[in-house]
C-alpha cells in the first residue's frame, strides 16, 4: 500500500534505473568518445548549447519578446523541464515533445514563425533547454492524456518493419552489447539527446536518429516531428526512466 502510494509521483532515480539494467548509450562508447563528452570544452555539442543560450535572450516575433523575458534565468526555470518531455499538452490535445513545446511558445507567445525541424536554431534551443536538466532523471508521465500515445509508441517499438523486417526491440532489447559491423548495439536510450553524432558531424534530434534507424532497416522513415515519432519518443523515454540526462551527449 505504502509503496503504491509513493511510486507514481516521485519516479525512478538513477539508482533504480541502474538496478533495472537500464544503461545509457554512454556506457557503450569507447573511452576516447566518453572523454570527449566529459570534456566541457571539447564536447562539440556545447557549440549548440552556447548558441541556444544566445537565442534564449534574443527578441523574436510580433510581441518582440525573448524566452528570457518570460522564463528569466533558464538555469532555474528550465531545470528538470526536459526530463518530463514528451508530455501531454491540453492546449494541443496531444502529446508533444520539447521541440514542439518550444515551437508552441514561439508561435503563440512570441507570435514568431515556427522553427524548421532539425534546423540549427531548433537544435540549439532544445540542447540549451535540455542541458539545464543534466544529471536529473528522466521522468515522463504515461497516464491520462498520454496513455494512448504511449501505447502507440510501444506498438511502434515492437513492430517489425522494412526490408530487413526488424523491430526496434530486435536490436535494442534482444541484441544489446552485440556487434553490428563496427558498432556495439546499445539499448537505444535517448537520455543524451540532442546528441552530437560523429557520423553526422553535427547535432541531431531523437527524430533524426529514429529516421536513421528506420532507414538502416530499409524502412520508409516518418517525418521528423510526426506524431508517430513523438509517440515512439515518449515510449523510449519511459523505457529509460530514471536515466540521468546527458545533453549534449557525444555518440558515434
Amino acid at each position: 500500500m505504502l509503496l503504491l502510494a509513493a511510486s507514481p509521483a516521485s519516479g525512478d532515480s538513477p539508482a533504480d534505473a541502474a538496478k533495472a539494467g537500464r544503461r545509457s548509450g554512454y556506457e557503450f562508447l569507447t573511452p576516447p568518445t566518453q572523454q570527449l563528452q566529459n570534456d566541457e570544452f571539447a564536447n562539440p555539442g556545447m557549440l549548440w548549447v552556447e548558441a541556444g543560450k544566445a537565442l534564449w535572450s534574443q527578441r523574436e516575433g510580433a510581441t518582440h519578446k525573448s524566452c528570457a523575458d518570460c522564463h528569466d534565468d533558464a538555469a532555474k526555470s528550465m531545470r528538470a523541464v526536459a526530463t518530463r518531455y514528451p508530455a501531454y499538452s491540453k492546449e494541443a490535445g496531444r502529446v508533444i515533445n520539447l521541440e514542439q513545446r518550444i515551437d508552441r511558445c514561439r508561435t503563440r507567445r512570441q507570435q514568431a514563425s515556427a522553427l524548421v525541424y532539425e534546423s540549427k536554431e531548433q537544435l540549439a534551443l532544445t540542447a540549451f533547454v535540455s542541458s539545464q536538466s543534466r544529471g536529473l532523471p528522466t521522468n515522463v508521465a504515461i497516464d491520462g492524456g498520454a496513455a494512448s500515445s504511449f501505447e502507440r509508441g510501444r506498438e511502434f517499438y515492437v513492430q517489425r518493419r522494412g526490408q530487413l523486417n526488424l523491430s526496434c526491440a530486435n536490436c535494442h532489447d534482444q541484441h544489446v552489447g552485440a556487434h553490428l559491423r563496427g558498432d556495439t548495439i546499445s539499448q537505444g536510450q535517448v537520455n543524451g539527446f540532442p546528441i552530437y553524432r560523429q557520423l553526422w558531424q553535427t547535432l541531431g534530434s531523437t527524430h533524426r536518429m529514429f529516421a536513421w534507424c528506420n532507414e538502416a532497416v530499409r524502412a520508409e522513415p516518418y517525418a521528423a516531428g510526426s506524431q508517430e515519432y513523438v509517440d515512439l519518443e515518449l515510449y523510449v523515454r519511459w523505457r529509460g526512466r530514471g536515466l540521468p540526462l546527458e545533453t549534449p551527449a557525444v555518440r558515434r
Binding site: F41, L47, E50, K120
Partner: peptide, 9 residues
Amino acid sequence: MAFNTRIRV
C-alpha cells in the same frame, strides 16, 4: 545564424 566560436584562455 552566424558560426559561433568557443575559446578558452
